[in-house]
Design a binder for these strands. Structure first.
Lengths: 339, 339
DNA sequence: CAAAACCGTGAAAGCGCTTTCAGGGTGAAG
DNA sequence: CTTCACCCTGAAAGCGCTTTCACGGTTTTG
């Protein structure tokens, strides 16, 4: 069978307790004994049994990444991989493991691990969407949680977010600086904070320039290419059409671009276009898309640090840490005012 | 504290053994008793402790997805998310969980879970790269493993792969059909099977057409955009330059396209270009890229099924199942022979 | 020099579950 | 009416580890 701690203890001529102390780096062990134990471990290639350890210590060294159903259709976006990689980086450093909890539609309870006991020490909720089950769970949770992006209806949850509002404002101000005046926006879903904040940034910029927010220039999308396409078609029915469009995601900008092409309009010749996210595709498009870059990897790293720090120090303290990461304006070719 | 199985048993007026039987759906329990236990569980909102269960049953219901260091720089590709989503789909159906094991550079042992006892019931190795540690581990492994993509040096590992060779051949034959004759290729890394197979398909097509494989028309890349860019620069130094280029990944095709643009050449006007993978970007590029589509989600699902079936039935049997999934030629605008 | 503090160690009691074993009941078979 | 098979249930023995507690020995303190 497998080698157990007992085997190690026997081999090193100590008790199981001492062997355990050595493995867990506890103080108060004679250096000579310590070395004997390590040697036994090396010789036998011993690996501790994780479930046994978790059971006894009540610590699993595992955190979950919760990705709600409603958004993991966007999983193909580079957003999640980069986020997860950021999280993994920190977790690896600190000897933590990552459980992936992609919500599923197949059974009643969409999350496999939420609420299961003793398995997850903490969780990172990826992308602050308002999901029925998730909110319900969060409301009565027993393990520490950090959210990536704010969840408005859950005030008490620590989060790390990107400054969507400021990023959008900078972008629209750039548009204004180019001389555009009739600027439309294709927003994200207004039931998630990122959608609302980016719209708020758009409003801020117009307001600061003394321009009104015209309702007919605001169309709601859902971050997908398809929704960008339809929204653009709607906008094209206006007379006159907008002179520039700020899409709240690059994918929507891509959809908008396709609609514009289909209508025989050129970008930026006939109309300016800008996005948000700076996915790789943004740079590859023709014309290359002006957009706002989010530090996604950093977002993940920060979330992981927040969570792990909390696990190590004060798991139960009602911490309400908030971190806001800056965005960066990426100017390319899609909204240059021609003269 | 937390509710345990003991509480449930007491509440339902049965022994712990019986309560356990109910939860695990064992036969030979009186229906009335069964209902009493379920009711107690409902009333208390009991959730079993996973580590305890794993320890006692020696089954964790967790599988690992192993992503080697050398490739998770490519993690931003849509490849991994889609693959993982496919795996997750099957795992959710069968009540299994997913541990993500992104190899790390921070410490000596790059994988956190490989070899840890009692935690992983099985593992899926994503993308069959030849990684030192991984191979060493695979060679002496105790849990079932399924590989996505063949690992040439490990013959005994079941795998599911895409028919890279055939896909590449079909694509190059399409190029030949368009009238291209001086077709170059930017290959993937030749130390991984996908790289070699796609090159083999390229050779097959040329061979079948009675054309030689010219060494100067073959440049090795590593699937990244950057490597495609450099490789194309190399190819552009040839006289005459190739009349078409088959890049073994869409990202490399994108890099190549940029190099061509920088050189003032138009695609497909001056030179044809094709890729492999059919990532979303391929359709969004200008010109839209002709490429080969892999059924990535299906790849993940199949791998998961293979593994889970094996876990349930014969964990130790030296199964050597192989599944080969077909690819699909996606013809767009980047390699149309002008007359 | 007595008292107190500290160090290194082992025994033993769990952590919360599964599973084997045995036994009592019931109905069918002989 | 006995025997056997079968169903249902509980007692108890772990699964492999951590951690508390106690104890003897050594050092420090007043």
């Amino acid at each position: 069978m497998n080698i157990t701690l007992d085997d190690i203890a026997r081999r090193a001529g100590v008790s199981r307790a001492t062997a355990s102390r050595v493995i867990n780096n506890h103080p108060h062990v004679n250096p000579a004994v310590r070395e004997r134990v390590w040697q036994a471990i090396r010789e036998t290639n011993y690996q501790p049994n994780l479930p046994a350890r978790s059971l006894a210590s009540r610590r699993s060294q595992v955190i979950g990444i919760i990705i709600p159903q409603s958004i993991h259709t966007l999983f193909a976006d580079p957003y999640f991989p980069l986020l997860i990689e950021g999280i993994a980086h920190v977790c690896n450093e600190r000897q933590f493991s990552i459980m992936l909890d992609l919500a599923t539609t197949t059974d009643g309870d969409p999350y496999r691990h939420l609420g299961r006991r003793g398995f997850l020490e903490g969780a990172i909720v990826a992308s602050a969407v308002e999901d029925q089950f998730l909110l319900q769970w969060l409301a009565q949770e027993t393990i520490p949680v950090v959210s990536v992006g704010r969840i408005m209806s859950q005030q008490a949850i620590p989060y790390v977010d990107v400054n969507n509002r400021h990023g959008a404002r900078m972008l629209v101000e750039h548009l204004l600086g180019q001389g555009y005046r009739r600027i439309a926006t294709i927003t994200g879903p207004m039931n998630i904070v990122a959608g609302r904040d980016r719209f708020a940034g758009y409003s801020d910029a117009l307001y600061a320039a003394g321009l009104p927010v015209m309702p007919e220039l605001v169309v709601e999308g859902n971050f997908s290419e398809q929704s960008g396409f339809s929204a653009m078609q709607t906008l094209l029915r206006l007379v006159p059409i907008p002179d520039a469009v700020f899409a709240a995601s690059d994918m929507m900008a891509l959809g908008a671009l396709k609609a514009l092409r289909a209508a025989g309009l050129s970008v930026p010749g006939d109309i300016g276009l800008a996005g948000f996210d700076d996915i790789p595709l943004a740079a590859a498009m023709t014309p290359a898309l002006t957009t706002v870059r989010q530090p996604i990897g950093e977002l993940g790293q920060t979330a992981a640090r927040l969570l792990l720090d909390r696990l190590v120090t004060a798991p139960l303290a009602p911490v309400t840490q908030r971190v806001m990461l800056p965005t960066e304006l990426v100017i390319r070719d899609s909204c240059v005012r021609q003269r």
